[in-house]
Design a protein around this nucleic acid. Structure first.
Length: 581
RNA sequence: GGUCUGGUAGUUCAGUUGGUUAGAAUAUCGCCCUGUCACGGCGAGGGUCGCGGGUUCGAGUCCCGUCCAGACCGCCA
């Protein structure tokens, strides 16, 4: 046995006993005749002290240590003369008796402390050292707990964990596939799954009416702070259910997770909002409803007064930033610059201050009388002291820009508290979206999503208006997950492929196995998948998922620690029958 | 594919209209210190200013190219 106790468990009750701990040297405070060494492991930090009553040998050994040495220390637990209330073991210390260096260490390239001096690049390169830091370990502990509680909940609801293959077949829909060459089938390739979508549907056909899996998915697309090329889904599917059954089941799961992991009681009933309403009120399919500042349609009161920018716009939208009338010209100019950045792309920003004396001051006073502006204020429900911000243009573009501005204002005004959690089901997504590039419709969710029966009659005349039995769970402006009721009818599925521009032959080649399965008694079914990384990051109050992944990739999709991806040897390429350009 | 920001000591950063020997903090090393816990004091070592080219009497600083990192747009059913 290397240790009798961990570095986190000794308390004043242990005073007098002789113990052995093992861990890493955190800090050394050498005062000459008195030396303290903090020893760290996963469980905490214990202070070891050497003094005049210690043996010369052990004192010498303590003085020879360096940061991050791995040591085994035996000593007597004693009370500190000056307790440290900031750490759990702060009432005791270990009077050193024996020091064994289990392994020396180079000086680490950055400090292994809660507030490290290391930059992101360096910490990524030495991720195994970064993972020694408390805050990083806490994040992985949080992930572990979410994972465990997910299994507990789904098990309690009779879900069955079934593994699905990772080497599957490439399909044209959706994201780019990661591809794996097959040596035994030269010239052919597997694809890594973007999700286990078709397999979980086949499991429904097989009769496993409640399936789940916490599973890696792979998408070869450009990355963001909240997107990794490999990420983890809580993937679920149920048979003999309607949309409500699914929403209720997983509302329960999210409530369970927040209760057990964070001690947070979420809304008893998550609000639901149609996609079209979310777009109108927030310009987003994943609105952050922790704060108001909802969109106001200014078309009726802003148009027709001779201001050509608004007159020519399809849509004029305002938001009311309450109590912001005191914004200075400089602040407003800064906001204007912000919305005009290429990433936002607004042409300009119109503002109107609602002065305390009941008058109005806008950047377009030339075109609008006080009465006109009073109508704006009334429409936006603005009170004296409020600030109205207005954007205009095409409906789609203006909504998108205003969504960004609203979130930006929410950040600036501190309205997006990471310890407040506001879930929202967004339902009735469109079935299809128009793709300019290919000049045809794409499935908005995926090609197995069922249209709403009442919209089926539009499918040939106005396919863009057909709504789907599809839903997302949004929380705090993040899409945590989504799903749909699936098509379980061969004819309808075949029609969908038709609509998506697949020929009969292509559909047969790509998804023949699924359509065949549907001919052998496929039950009505549906499901959803949560992004575990995003869920955990949201629960931890972060926007970046990288800290919640033990070994993440950087924004070029590289693992800078192991230096992947990397070239293959020509022997390997030959064996695979691959010639590089 | 694009936009923006950054790259200077082991690390995090500062570095003036282009001008003497490129600084600070921290880390490291040495000496001193009996109650520290961000220990303290004194001292020392430590630089391919990302890389390549150009302008100039002179470039960390200006210009061009390039590489790397981060955020974002496109993309991500």
């Amino acid at each position: 046995m290397y240790r009798s106790h961990t570095c986190g468990e000794l308390r004043s009750e242990n005073i007098g006993s002789t113990v052995t701990i093992a861990g890493w040297v955190q800090t050394i405070r050498d005062k000459g005749n008195l030396i303290w060494v903090d020893i760290r492991d996963r469980y905490g930090i214990t202070q070891v002290v050497g003094q005049d009553t210690s043996s010369e040998e052990s004192l010498k050994a303590l003085k020879s240590l360096g940061r991050e040495f791995v040591v085994q220390i035996t000593g007597t637990v004693s009370a500190r003369s000056a307790a440290n209330p900031n750490i759990e073991t702060g009432e005791i210390e270990l009077l050193v008796e024996k020091v064994v260096v289990l392994n020396a260490s180079l000086t680490p390239p950055f400090t292994i402390e809660d507030n490290t001096d290391g930059g992101e690049e360096l910490r990524a390169q030495y991720r195994y050292l970064d993972l020694r830091r408390g805050p990083v370990q806490d994040k992985l502990r949080l992930r572990n707990k979410v994972n465990l509680e997910t299994r507990k909940y789904l098990d309690s609801q009779d879900f069955l964990d079934v593994e699905t293959p990772v080497l599957i077949k490439s399909t044209p829909e959706g994201a780019r596939d990661f591809v794996v060459p097959s040596r035994m089938n030269e010239g052919q390739f597997y694809a890594l799954p973007q999700s286990p979508q078709t397999f979980k549907q086949l499991l429904m056909v097989s009769g496993f009416d409640k399936y789940f899996q916490i599973v890696k998915c792979f998408r070869d697309e450009d990355l963001r702070a909240d997107r990794q090329p490999e990420f983890t889904q809580i993937d679920c599917e149920m048979a003999f259910v309607e949309q409500d059954d699914i929403l209720n089941m997983f509302e329960g799961m999210i409530q369970h997770l927040f209760r057990e992991v964070r001690g947070v009681e979420l809304d008893a009933k998550f609000p639901r909002m149609e996609y079209s309403e979310a777009m109108e009120r927030y310009g987003s399919d994943k609105p952050d409803i922790r704060f108001g500042m909802e969109f106001v349609d200014l078309n009726p009161v802003a148009k027709g007064k001779g201001f050509s920018i608004f007159d020519d716009a399809e849509q004029v939208i305002a938001i009311n930033a309450e109590q912001c009338a005191a914004y200075t010209r400089k602040q407003l100019d800064k906001l204007t610059d912000w919305v005009r950045r290429p990433q936002i792309g607004a042409k300009g920003l119109v503002y109107m201050r609602c002065n305390e004396d009941g008058t109005f001051k806008s950047s377009v006073d030339k075109f609008y009388s006080q009465e006109d502006l009073a109508a704006w204020a009334k429409t936006a429900n603005a009170k004296p002291g409020d600030l109205i911000l207005v954007l205009s243009g095409t409906t789609e573009g203006t909504r998108k820009q205003m969504n960004e501005l609203r979130l930006h204002m929410g950040d600036e005004l501190g309205l997006r508290n990471p310890n407040v959690f506001k879930p929202l089901w967004v339902v009735d997504f469109p079935l299809l979206e128009w793709d300019e590039e290919s000049g045809r419709y794409n499935a908005m969710h995926h090609p197995f999503t069922s249209p709403k029966p009442e919209d089926l009659h539009l499918i040939d005349t106005e396919p863009g208006k057909v709504r789907a039995n599809a839903y997302d769970l949004a929380m705090n402006g993040v899409e945590l997950g989504g799903g749909s009721i699936r098509i379980h009818d061969r004819d309808l599925q075949s029609r969908m492929f038709d609509l998506l521009g697949f020929t009969k032959e292509e559909a047969e080649a790509q998804f023949g196995f699924l359509m065949s399965a549907f001919e052998y008694g496929a039950p009505p079914h549906g499901g959803l998948a949560f992004g575990l990384d995003r869920l955990v990051a949201t629960m931890g109050g972060s926007e970046s998922i990288r800290d919640y992944i033990a070994f993440p990739k950087n924004n070029s999709g590289r693992d800078v620690m192991i230096d992947a991806p990397s070239p293959l040897s020509s022997d390997q390429l030959t064996e695979l029958g691959i010639a590089l350009k």
